[in-house]
């Protein structure tokens, strides 16, 4: 028999600390596979954010910087501006990117920074124990919305990809998920295209990946996948919101 699956070389040997069934692990693997396939592991500089993925610097087998809460796009900007020859990516959650760091996110996108953002949206603050995130669904219970998120009190779930789509500096914006092998393949393709945006100097690439938090959703891991497919996707539709390649085709360049 021959081995047909293997751990990507862009991951270290450190076991993930994530809770059972949390799909951060799948997303880490896909990002690492993409780094391997582009041959970028030795060149890349990654930025870990604050939240469950804070320890990403222990997992990716490339140079890494850990950023203050929400500031990863600013840190990435600083790195990319002084080292344009390096591939620079951030890995951020919804609290980090969509709440405390929405300013840095929008301005990095609006400047068209040549960086790649992996945005993991699980509709909750995982690390701190399941508080409401900017992306928490209407009616969804969290430790700070014990009776469910309501429009009157908390406003609407934040549509990050739709917001960034409006910015000319954003070259590639897609929302995907990892709830099945086919969705995993779509996510992989989206990551590759977001990498291309940076490699070709087109501007910011962002892949928003709907991800589970079984523990804070109080669901088993399989139920959590169903929750994404049935509830989250209704609020956060999947798809490619913007692709520089399409613009090239449309403009006839």
């Amino acid at each position: 028999m021959r081995q047909v699956t293997a751990k990507p070389k862009a991951l270290t040997n450190a076991p993930f600390h994530y809770c059972p069934g949390c799909t951060h692990g799948i997303i880490h693997r896909l990002l690492a596979e993409t780094l391997d396939e582009f041959g970028l592991t030795e060149n890349a500089i990654g930025i870990a954010s604050v939240g469950c993925s804070v320890f990403a610097y222990d997992y990716f087998n490339c140079d890494m910087q850990q950023a203050a809460h929400g500031r990863a796009p600013a840190v990435a900007t600083g790195i990319k501006r002084v080292r344009p020859q390096n591939f620079v990516f951030t890995y951020q959650g919804d609290g980090d990117l969509g709440s405390i760091g929405i300013g840095e996110t929008i301005h990095a996108a609006n400047r068209g920074e040549n960086i790649t953002i992996i945005f993991v949206n699980n509709a909750v603050y995982g690390m701190t124990g399941g508080q409401m995130a900017p992306t928490t669904l209407l009616g969804q219970k969290s430790s700070t919305t014990p009776t469910g998120r309501s429009i009157g009190e908390h406003g609407y779930p934040l549509p990050v990809s739709e917001l960034l789509q409006a910015l000319p500096g954003a070259a590639y914006v897609a929302r995907t998920t990892v709830t099945s092998p086919s969705q995993i393949r779509i996510t992989k393709r989206a990551l590759a295209q977001a990498f291309q945006a940076q490699i070709q100097g087109r501007g910011l690439g962002l892949v928003e990946i709907l991800s589970t938090c079984p523990v804070n959703w109080h669901m088993d891991p399989v139920e959590a996948l169903t929750f994404i497919n049935e509830e989250m996707v209704a609020q956060f539709p999947l798809g490619v919101f913007k692709d520089f390649d399409e613009e090239v085709a449309r403009d006839g360049k």
Binding site: I45, I47, Q65, A67, A68, R71, A74, V75, A76, T77, G78, I79, R81, V82, R83, N86, G103, E104, H107
Partner: peptide, 21 residues
Amino acid sequence: VFLQAESELAAINMVYGAAGA
């Protein structure tokens, strides 16, 4: 490299990134 940041928060974190690099 000169870059006007969107805030002092962003500016000092750009400094962090560039210094780290």
